[in-house]
Design a protein around this nucleic acid. Structure first.
Lengths: 231, 231
DNA sequence: GCAAATTAATGATTTATTCAAG
DNA sequence: CTTGAATAAATCATTAATTTGC
């Protein structure tokens, strides 16, 4: 056991957790790379955090949500109205979920629900003592702002963070782009470990300008309904 | 269907495929980010390719190898010696596999098997007409060279390409680093799409200098043996 | 109260499965 | 049917809760 065994894994601060949970409950299930970057930049105000932490957090949270839910479903005979309630809750979440244009191009025309989504993200919420520099309500406001501009932008590969570095905002806000438009196919990064290493003291972290954000997959069948696929 | 619907997915050239398969057969099962980058850089000589293509290729190839194997195992009563043969083949591959220092810190002292591995990677191999600039045997040589320098460097996260941008080579070649040493924990990625987009014509692609490479996980139980873990 | 010992949560990886292009 | 791409499930590993014996 090394003496200065710097913690190997991310330990989220209460504020970080709260924001993440708030976003999750708001419908953000599988943020894409750009969203992750922005979220990370903001959460770094409250402590050390990396993009992969955010990525993993959402992945795990979603998986364990599903898992808990399924377990509650199967474990013993569930009371009818409880079951129903659960289903409704999850269907609501589904509605909120944003759309990834490639994987589910035909299922829905709902796009950019994020406009409806994010403004409601941060409810009037208690502001506990911030463990780092910024009080929580600050993030609330800014997050609501920076995430509000989400925009479908093309294909992205969520599981391997897929960053486009073309920062310029496309003219077209949402101009019915053909499914296979492929700008933003570059493969890039994240780079939050070293910069945002020890909280926010080392550099401004100016929220990394807003720029379009790719929506993510809608597919999340089998929460409430049985998997009924026409394979 | 758009007129100029540039193919949405990577279509490997025969040379690329051959090199990849050669590496796979040589023991490269789960290249890390740096390796992927280097491989990509080299394969880009033969045609458009991105890091994620390489990543996916290895992932899929490994998975389907396993799958084929399992299917052959279960499907009907397998002839004894065939089974054994398969097992041996896979155990050999296991031996070749490199070690990720964090996940399996105690299981073995085998490290940096890559020195034993890579020199044998590229067998004397026929050189078909290269469809792009470089004949295949070139890649063979250079790949054997550029991959030979692999070095355990710290933790990496394969699924989300995890690049360290600290390019300086650590003094210590392999100095018994404590398990929780954490240099190289940055998070980065790759940028191969735009640069190596349309073959190699746009820029030199100087093979991105050699620098230390993280070895990847050894763990690959349950090919031939049943999972027998002392959890 | 307090650590050592257990257990529960959850961050991080790997593997399996699914979707869809060709 | 093959296989590139993407997601979900399973698993591993470490940290936090908590129990327990003193």
């Amino acid at each position: 056991m090394p003496v200065t065994a710097a913690s190997t894994r991310w330990c989220p601060t209460p504020e970080q957790l709260m924001v993440l949970e708030e976003m999750y409950r708001g419908g953000m299930k599988t943020p894409n790379a750009t969203q992750i970057q922005q979220i990370t930049a903001h959460l770094s105000h409250y402590g050390k955090i990396e993009g992969k932490n955010v990525f993993y957090w959402f992945q795990n949270h979603k998986a364990r949500d599903r898992q808990r839910f399924r377990r509650r479903l199967t474990k013993q005979h569930m009371v009818q109205h409880h079951h129903l309630q659960q289903c409704q809750q999850h269907q609501q979440l589904l509605l909120y979920r944003s759309v990834e244009p490639f994987r589910q191009p035909l299922t829905t025309t709902i796009r950019n629900l994020q406009h409806h989504l994010f403004p409601h993200f941060f409810q009037p919420c208690y502001t506990p003592a911030a463990s780092h520099n910024h009080p929580l309500h600050y993030i609330h406001k800014s997050s609501a702002t920076f995430l509000d501009q989400a925009q479908v932008q093309g294909r992205c590969s969520p599981q391997m963070i897929n960053y486009t570095w073309k920062v310029e905002i496309p003219e077209e806000k949402e101009t019915e782009k053909p499914v296979s438009r492929s700008y933003g196919d570059d493969w890039m990064i994240i780079t939050d470990s070293e910069p945002t290493s020890t909280c926010c003291s080392t550099r401004p972290l100016e929220t990394l300008e807003l720029f379009p954000v790719t929506a993510t997959s809608l597919k999340d069948r089998a929460y409430c309904s049985d998997p009924n696929q026409t394979s």
